[in-house]
Write a protein that binds this DNA or RNA. Sequence first.
DNA 1: ATCTTAACGCAAGTGCCCTTGCGTTAAATC
DNA 2: GATTTAACGCAAGGGCACTTGCGTTAAGAT
Lengths: 206, 206
Amino acid sequence: MTGTEGAEEAPDPIRRRPGGRAARVRAAVLAAAMDALAEGGIAGFGVADVAVRAGVNESTVYRRWGSREKLLLDAMLTGSDAGIPVPDTGEVRTDLAAFARALAEYMATPLGGAVARAATLGSDDPVLAESWRTFWQSRLDQAGAIVRRGVERGELPPDTDTGLALELLCAPLQTRALLGHRPLEPDLPERLADVLLDGLRSRDRN
Amino acid sequence: MTGTEGAEEAPDPIRRRPGGRAARVRAAVLAAAMDALAEGGIAGFGVADVAVRAGVNESTVYRRWGSREKLLLDAMLTGSDAGIPVPDTGEVRTDLAAFARALAEYMATPLGGAVARAATLGSDDPVLAESWRTFWQSRLDQAGAIVRRGVERGELPPDTDTGLALELLCAPLQTRALLGHRPLEPDLPERLADVLLDGLRSRDRN
DNA sequence: ATCTTAACGCAAGTGCCCTTGCGTTAAATC
DNA sequence: GATTTAACGCAAGGGCACTTGCGTTAAGAT
């Protein structure tokens, strides 16, 4: 139902036009989307508004992206690549605490909150969910360097689960931002790093 | 702008009618909302649909609850009070693992996922956010018995932060369900309990 | 320079969330 | 039983996400 006159599904079914106006429109819309997110977060994020900001018709946005959620995803993938800096202080504890602190500050911004909220919305559609999975995996791999360096230095056992460790560190910060759980105390990042490394039972410090 | 002829803001400004039809309508709508959530989760949750299920006009729902999110909140507060059973096995580790397992299973159901998603939506409005805060606090207090019993038995230090401990246990499960992060492995609850108690460094078991 | 057509602008329309005015029902009071 | 009025049903409408058909623009190939 896709091919019309033979085997033409592998390389390029139809002639695309990646240069000129198309690229200009795409860049303008994504930039406008990031601006709108940075201003009002996800609450006031509307396709019509983004289209006006980009100087583009609303139908164009829907034809290229398909839905509000897909536009959100693409904007995140394109404009939020910088992400959170991964510290390298030479010690696992300080690295984890610094990363957690940076994450907490980022989640407090309209843009940071929008990332998490957009991801929750995208978990309905299986295709979007898969894209978000790779998005999170990419970020997890970056921050995973903290744990991997800790293992190399002998600070952590060799069989340490990198993903699980970072999940335990980041998940509380994300849920607080998402659910409005409770305010993010300034010392929370350090306390999370402490419990993560030593567990609840050994409370020698503090 | 609320009072019309004096000081009548403290006890009861106007004569309410808690009996009869009003209570019947309220119960019918909330029950219909829970049914709709259990079937399709938050995705297909519509006010018009709930109104039809309850045999009530749509405008009635909006006059009593105000918005889709407020209706969601009230339905959760009323119908999801049962919550997750808090185990009492006599040991902290097994209690934490069992509770985490029950939470993971609940979050996998349409209703469980709807609770978390409804809470993320409600974090925009300050009034709703406060209601959700008390909702989570109530659940946290219930589960906090696990940690408190552990402290009493001497399994945990006296200065253990109950809230932080449960947050570290539950947050990863919630983010996985909310963000579609990655599938919930069956052994995840136990591993979370292990790391939470002993930390990443002491990996004697496993 | 000319042709082909992907991509865009315009306009009309659907569905859902939400609001509002008006008449009606029925709960609470007398 | 008669009266008052809170709460409901009905109907019309605005706003936003999303779709679609049609004519126009301009990128890429000849």
